[in-house]
């Protein structure tokens, strides 16, 4: 990726402008992530580095939530990996549209986040690289700067719970969850996941309930009758 090309690419600039609403929302959520990470006992620098090099909101929240519940590092990392599982599928779709050798393609793939992937999707199986990079840039800046502000605020606030900060995690997840409930199957999986998480949350060591809930997604393996007219996406 050449910075000069990007700066002069009208497509990348249009992508950056289109991503501004997502970047603003991400900024607020990142502030809450920084505050929550501090409340969970995470060092300020670790929270900032996490946002800088992971750049994956839901996975970061999941990992920090499990550490805060007293779960192990293995459980936290596994939860983050499972949460990022969607990027695996999205990356396969994106692959043919990227350029260059292996290293460059791997690096270009790091600009993948949900909103930028959706905006770059041309709907014909191809993706616009410049839209992807352009829309990812403001979201990255917002995510990192929001985390830094949240970490500072979290260190300064004597009692973040008085401000309801512990409700921000689940509220953000709820907003993401609702956008995932596009089918009856997904809704059923969500209900099953919640039941498993609470029951095992009471009985098993911290973090196990969340991981076990992921197993419910395996209902996707059951055979279904394919719609005959549906074109290959």
């Amino acid at each position: 990726m050449n910075v000069t090309t990007l700066r002069t690419s009208p497509v990348a600039r249009a992508g950056a402008r289109a991503a501004v609403p997502f970047a603003l929302a991400g900024f607020v959520v990142a502030i809450s992530f920084g505050i929550s990470a501090r409340a969970a006992g995470m060092p300020a620098a670790a929270a900032i580095v996490m946002s800088a090099i992971m750049y994956a909101g839901a996975a970061q929240f999941a990992a920090v939530a499990i550490l805060a519940q007293g779960g192990s590092v293995v459980a936290a990392v596994l939860a983050a990996m499972l949460m990022n599982g969607r990027y695996f599928a999205m990356g396969l779709a994106l692959g043919p549209s990227l350029k260059g050798g292996r290293v460059r393609r791997a690096i270009e793939g790091q600009t993948l986040v949900d909103a930028s992937w959706a905006m770059a999707n041309r709907g014909d199986g191809r993706f616009d690289r410049h839209t992807l990079f352009g829309s990812s840039a403001p979201q990255y800046v917002a995510w990192l700067s929001g985390t830094i502000i949240g970490v500072i605020a979290g260190s300064a606030l004597p009692n973040p719970e008085a401000l309801g900060i512990d409700a921000v995690f689940p509220a953000f997840f709820l907003a993401l969850l609702v956008s995932e409930l596009r089918t009856a199957e997904a809704s059923a999986v969500a209900v099953g996941g919640a039941i498993v998480a609470v029951v095992l949350g009471l009985l098993a060591p911290a973090g196990i309930g969340i991981l076990a809930a992921a197993v419910i997604a395996l209902v996707g393996l059951r055979p279904v009758r394919e719609a005959p007219t549906e074109p290959e996406a």
Binding site: A79, A89, F169, L174, E180, A186, A194, A213, A214, I216
Partner: peptide, 18 residues
Amino acid sequence: RVLTLLPAALLSALVVTE
């Protein structure tokens, strides 16, 4: 399909436990 269903299971588990 499993990968598309994973976020629903995990997000719901996190919403409820948190």
